[in-house]
Structure formats: structure tokens, C-alpha cells
Design a protein around this nucleic acid. Sequence first.
DNA 1: CCAGTTACAGTAACCGGTTACATTATTTCA
DNA 2: TGAAATAATGTAACCGGTTACTGTAACTGG
Lengths: 339, 339
Amino acid sequence: MTKRSHSVTIRQVAQQAGVSVATVSRYLNRNAPISKEVAGRLEQVMAELRYVPHSAARQLASKKTHIVGLLLSDLHNDFFVPLLDGIETVVRKNGYNLLVATYHAGSRNLPPPIGPHNTDGLLVFSDGLTDNDLAALSAQNFPMVLVHRTPPQDLPIPSVTVENKKITAELIEHLITVHQRKRILLFRGPEQQEDSYWRELGYRNALEAHGIPFDESLVLHGNFEKTVAQQSLSKFLEDQNHPQFDAIFSGDDDAAVGVLAALREHRYRVPEDVSVAGFDNSGFSAFLNPPLTTVSAPTEAVGRIAAERLFSLFDKQSAEGVTLLPTELIIRHSCGCPI
Amino acid sequence: MTKRSHSVTIRQVAQQAGVSVATVSRYLNRNAPISKEVAGRLEQVMAELRYVPHSAARQLASKKTHIVGLLLSDLHNDFFVPLLDGIETVVRKNGYNLLVATYHAGSRNLPPPIGPHNTDGLLVFSDGLTDNDLAALSAQNFPMVLVHRTPPQDLPIPSVTVENKKITAELIEHLITVHQRKRILLFRGPEQQEDSYWRELGYRNALEAHGIPFDESLVLHGNFEKTVAQQSLSKFLEDQNHPQFDAIFSGDDDAAVGVLAALREHRYRVPEDVSVAGFDNSGFSAFLNPPLTTVSAPTEAVGRIAAERLFSLFDKQSAEGVTLLPTELIIRHSCGCPI
DNA sequence: CCAGTTACAGTAACCGGTTACATTATTTCA
DNA sequence: TGAAATAATGTAACCGGTTACTGTAACTGG
């Protein structure tokens, strides 16, 4: 019951096994030959003493943290579960650890909580870092991979994201040509967010292709969040002289849930009065009321591939530019299609 | 363009500012008086050199990592977003970092990836660690808080979870008394998972209270996962002589989505033929088809409070036993109630 | 006016690993 | 068979911070 505060060191192991610390270290890292005999003795002693190498000491001496950082803008979307799942799977498989942090506009006076001082590399989601931050880190050759964002100013940072523009145009075109919608409300995602940008562009392109003028008053600003979307749309609907509309493209599926909530509150029928479409094809979207027409995005794959890119940066210094994963239109009932 | 691999050290800062390293360290930690003049000089030099203290060195010397570990069983449930959100918020507010890892049964030959060697304390979700692991760490006085799990063997580990049994009994009772359901299929959550256990107990209690015999053939095993639930129920339904049933209590809302999918596939009408109820009140549950009767659980609060408990352990060594957060019945249409 | 504090700063040991360099014994092979 | 390569291990410097210990100057109160 001696309660020393858990600090079995490599020297204790060495002494106990009658070898030098260097030998123990070599055994731990298996980076030099060790005799069978000594190896056996060490294994036993380490088990006996319940020795676990101290990470910080290891990191300091080896200049490697074996930690990957994930920088998010926030944690308010079901979307992050598959993303995290993909990332974590790869990180674990490589024997690394995952440091997760959010870093949003409000805290921009503070330095980022994760970076070269405590990780070997970063996965940067969306606007988790400013262009300047990215440029500075990139200049130091710090390994990074961007997720749902393309590199600014031609920085040579690999990037993994999904095809937004073309698929959104297809989706809007579907609303126009199949369902004769002409007043399509755009529920825009977060300002500064790239997906938002490309989706808006796809929306505009589709309108233009069909000779429908873009109407600023039909653009609402949301946040890829259920409640924000709900409140925002409710406020819009409560304005006596809000513009007419016959469809809503909400920024993503989470926002679509809020959109459906607000519409129901205000007695609109979906899809009879209003067509609704989302983006992401979240697990629940097929079972909303009505089933949600949306775009399926391979979010888990985005996470997985982004992490793999980062590890290949660790190895071979090879960058692979922008990876654009394909998306797919998922037609369900909320746009007006049967079933 | 000198590309030294980003290693501005405290000694360089000290030299540049004409003071000793001790003074720089004191300034960084603000744990001893520094003259205005020197402070100013240091601030400037540190900005100029873009000095960021090296975490590992700091951890090694101070014996504090300023990292909180979160150990999850997996990442396959939307439930984790609010949980993570609550945790991360508190962790960030305290100036700590968050290390996230999964550690499941399959990897039980490996040691846990996070523990005393790389964190100051652990949030352990559900069966993220075995009883033995917990006992060992607890014996070393390692700060931990359990989430959605109560401490085994009277270990003095604080725990934060939600009330499962009573509310589940209420829910089942609702199905029995209001909707005259008597053959209620229980979609059990993961084996070994405490929530599953208590929910099953609530289910049994409610049956017993109403003189309905427990029928083992009405228990299906799921995993709190959409697809697993869907497949599992589908297989059940495809068995020609499966027992009759008139309601399903699925382990949680995620599983409920799968249940709804399987039922639709097999042409059951909800709630006319079968009542369905879930657990968690996930953001989407109000907008499923039909709107899901469920139990609202304060998941974000669970995360927040668990993290707060951990930080209060860091400070005052005060443990607060088991915290049971209240849950609430949410009646919607999937059980058969109007609206 | 002097003992006792307090403010401020420096020196160097220490945290627990890794690894360059050195050493000895054993193989390998021309 | 002798030179060179390889196996197996040890010694000690080093990674970049923190902090105990020490010292000087200025301040405080009786």
C-alpha cells in the first residue's frame, strides 16, 4: 500500500532488470536488437512494476507527440459524429491519439489551443483557423489537412471535401423542372463557410440556367443548426409582408429539421405548399415527416481520407492537393415526389 | 527564410530579453512578481520570436498535462454530439485540452490509449473501461468521472448519468394503459451497458405491475445503432413464426430510426399496427414519421456536469457520488397519441 | 535605526525519456 | 586467419521547460 503517486520510471525498470536505461528504451521502441534473455526479463519486470512510459518525457526527447489535432468550429451538428468516427478510426489504427478542440471567432484573441507545440499535425475543419493562421503554420512546414475547405492563397495544404456546387444545382433544377418551383428560399449556411458558399453558387447557377432572377430577399442566414434555423425561419414567416415562396433549400439536414419545425408551426404543408430539401443525408433524414429530399455526402469517408492524407504527409511528405468526394442526389417525398 | 524547424525555446527568449529563463517562466505562469519593465520587454520579445512554450517540456517539468481524456466505447450515435459539446465547452473554459479515444472490447489486449501517463484525469463513458481498469486507476487516486455508468464495487468515483428505470416504467405503462398494448417488444441496447440494463428493468417492472408476464421471445438485442437495429428487426420480422407484438420500445432514438425503417419495409403501420417509442429525445425525433414518443434526456448537461465534476476533483479532491439527472416523458404520435 | 518582510531576479538541479558515441564479444568472409 | 561487420549493451548528454534555493535592494514598523 505504499502510495507513491504512480511514477515508475524507466530507471527503476532498468535497475530492477539489471540493465541500462538505454536497453529498456530500445526494448520499448524495438529499434535495436535486444537479446532474447534480456527481453524476457524486461517484459516481466515491466509487467510487475506496471510500468507505463511517461508521454511527455517521450515527446520531449523524441520530438514527436504521436498526437493528431482536430480543430472544429463548433460542435452543434450531428454531422460531426460520422466525421469524428472516420478520423478516430484511422488515428487509432496508426497508434496515435486525437486531440479535439473548438476554436471560434469569439476566441480569436487567444492563440489556437492546438498546433505544433502539442501535436504532430492538424486536421482543420472549415473555418477552424484563419487564412493567416494557416499561412503561418504552412510556412513552418507543419503537416495539416483541410476538411470541408480548400486551401487559401495557393498554400500547398491537402484538402478533403465534397462536391457541393454541381449537386446543389441539380437539386435546385429538380425543384424547378419537376415541381415547377420558382420562388425557392435559400437557407444559407454559416458565413465564411465554404460549403455554404458553393451551395449558394450552385443555387444561383441553377436559377440562372432557368431564367429565374436571383432575389436577395429569398436568402435567409442560418448556421447549420436546428434551433437557429427554426427561429430564423419563424421570424421570417411572422413578418406580415415576407416574400412569397414555394420551396426551401436548407443548408443541411440539421437545418432542415428546424425548417420543418417552423413550417409546421406556421401551418404550411410539406410538400404540398412548400418543397423542402436538405444536404448530408444524415441517418435520420429518410424518416423525417415527410422523408427528406437531400444530397448524400460521404462524411465518414471524408474523415477517414483526411486522416489518411495526414499520415501520408507524416511519412512521405507527399501532398495530394484537393480531394473532392462525390455526392449524390437523394430524392424523397419532401420535394413533392411520390415516396 | 532560415527554416529551422520551429523551435524557439525559453532560453532564446531569455537571452533576447536579457533576463534568466526563470524569469521568463515566471512571467508565463504569472506565479511570481515581475517588474513592469521586464514584463513589457518579455511580451515584446515573445511576440517578435513567435514563442510558444513546448507542451511536452511543460508537462514533464510541472507534472501536469492540462489534458482531460474522454474514453468512449465507440462513435456510432448522434447522442455523442451534445455529450461532446457539453464536455468540450467546460474543458475549454478551464484552459484544458481534450483527448478523445475509443477503446472497445476488441482491443482489450492493448492498454488504454489514455490514462495517467498522458492526461490529468479521465471521463469514462459507459463501458469504456473494465471494472478492473477502473479499480486500478482509482487505487492510484487518478481523477475520473464516470458518464452513463455507476461505479463498480463501491469505488469512490463520481458518476453522472440519467434516470432510466422509473421513466422507462412510466413509458411502458403509458403504452399499456393508454394504448392497451400487451405484447411489447423490447429492443435492448448493448449488452453490459448500464442504460440498457436499467431500461430493461423499468420495462420489466411496468409489465409486472400490470400483470403481464415477461416473455423472453419479445426481447431483441441491438446496439443503439440505426442500421444494426434495422437489420436485427428485419430478420426478426422475416422469421415466419415470430411472436406477435403490438408495440416496440427501442433502446434509444437512433435505434428507433432503424426500427421505423424495418417496420416500413415490412408494411407495418405506426402507430396503427405498432406503437413505437425511443429514448433520448434527439433533435430529429420530433420530426420523424410519425413523430417519436420518447424520453428527453439532458445529454449536453450530462457532459457539462461530468466535466465540471472532474475539474472540482482537480481542485478540492471532493467527490460527489452519483448524480442522477432527471428525464421526462415526451409523448408524440408514434405511440398512438394524437399529435 | 535595525530586524523582518517583500519585490524581483539568477543559478542550477530536475522531470523521464531518447540517442550519439563508445565498447566488447561474436560472426562473416575473402 | 585476420579484417570487417554485426550483435548487444552501457555512459552520459540532451530535449525545453519548472522551481527550490539563494541573493540583493527596497520597504515596513516599532
